[in-house]
Design a protein around this nucleic acid. Structure first.
Lengths: 209, 209
DNA sequence: ATAGTATTTATGCGAACGTATAATAACTTT
DNA sequence: AAAGTTATTATACGTTCGCATAAATACTAT
């Protein structure tokens, strides 16, 4: 004779968003195996039956959460670019510095990224998505590198900028991982300085922050 | 009245090794959630009860597998160094090239690494282990960098070599991830050339492969 | 106000999980 | 050769998982 739990109808959009965010929170906290339908529902403030109403299977929900995460990261990166001044050398330095500093570098993002990488290795569809977002980021970096080289009157032919973008992207990935996984090992300033200094060496020019 | 399955006593050492390898295979194939006691036992050619006989809990087995993986990677890296000639410039180029090429770079290692990174973010004990192996690799790289700089009559003070080791390690990590996660995107030679060329820029000297 | 809709809760089911325990057979020792 | 030890198999137990379905209630339209 326990009273039935009261509720409000929040609408499809809000509920889907809440479920997706709850899924990401669960994965970030305890890994993919902690993202059970019951735990997700609890976090989203609903009961588990509701998940079935908006997503046919749990797998579908996880895929939607992954997509949401990826597009969110790309958007955040683009928005950060908008806030930078027009000088190419300053823009590149700012972009590089941001990529290895909080809030871009943080343990939660790292945990989510590691979780998604596991799927990427195994699932061709996930791999395609990863490839797309990887290329989007790298193309952004390549454009910034080309602008910086031209601003310094240096050659910026496609073969050069491509190679620099691949190496620069790898450098940022690696520093981001180290800064996120071992946050106590480096000061934020040290990682930023290391990243910018390395880019100066790679491009053979002086950047301004 | 089905006959009981025949067996042989293999001894503690062999059985522990078989169980650990089976665990890693399961994780590499299907992620941590695929490493169930039943799947591990099947792969190791035993029945599930035996796991309990050698490991008090599944968690203990997974931790042992993780440790085995890490020490194995460190050993492989050191062994590869032994095979290189004494010239510092050649050694560094060889070390850098190997780090981003098969068999070091391959999807299985990548999957295992991604799985372990999840634990690293969450578990302090795992993080300590990760930190140790990270530093071991970086120190190795720093020594090679210092030797290469000295061989080229360049300054190799500790502050410089440390910063170069951090950046160089990050670069190798990033390229290794890209080469492993997206093996069809780059030719092996391209990744090797990119890595060596980037190190030349970072150190300001010409390497020989 | 009332009826209708479909969002949401509540409950249940079968499978698979980690772990515990008992039975058995392959070795070892005497 | 017989007895003893323990590595190994076999079976069972309780929990939790994803998913299915039925019941109820908040909202919408008339």
């Amino acid at each position: 004779m326990t009273p039935r739990r009261p509720f409000r109808r929040e609408g499809e959009e809000a509920r889907r968003a809440a479920l997706i965010n709850a899924t990401l929170d669960c994965i970030a906290d305890g890994g993919p195996q902690a993202a059970t339908v019951r735990a997700i529902a609890l976090r989203a403030g609903v009961t588990q039956g509701l998940i079935r109403h908006y997503f046919a299977t749990k797998e579908e929900l996880v895929a939607a959460a992954h997509e949401h995460l990826m597009t969110g990261l790309t958007k955040a990166s683009a928005a950060a670019l908008d806030a930078l001044p027009p000088d190419p050398l300053v823009r590149l330095a700012g972009f590089v510095g941001n990529a290895v500093s909080p809030p871009v570098a943080d343990p939660r993002s790292m945990a989510l990224w590691a979780a998604s990488m596991q799927l990427v290795v195994r699932d061709p569809a996930m791999r395609q998505g990863h490839e797309r977002s990887y290329l989007a980021f790298r193309d952004q970096l390549e454009a910034l590198i080309a602008d910086a080289l031209r601003a310094a009157d240096k050659p910026a032919d496609p073969a050069t900028t491509r190679r620099l973008a691949i190496a620069g992207n790898a450098l940022l990935d690696g520093l981001w991982i180290e800064a996120s996984a071992l946050p106590d090992m480096f000061a934020t300033d040290e990682i930023r300085a290391t990243a910018i200094h390395a880019f100066e060496s790679l491009l053979g020019l002086k950047l301004q922050e």
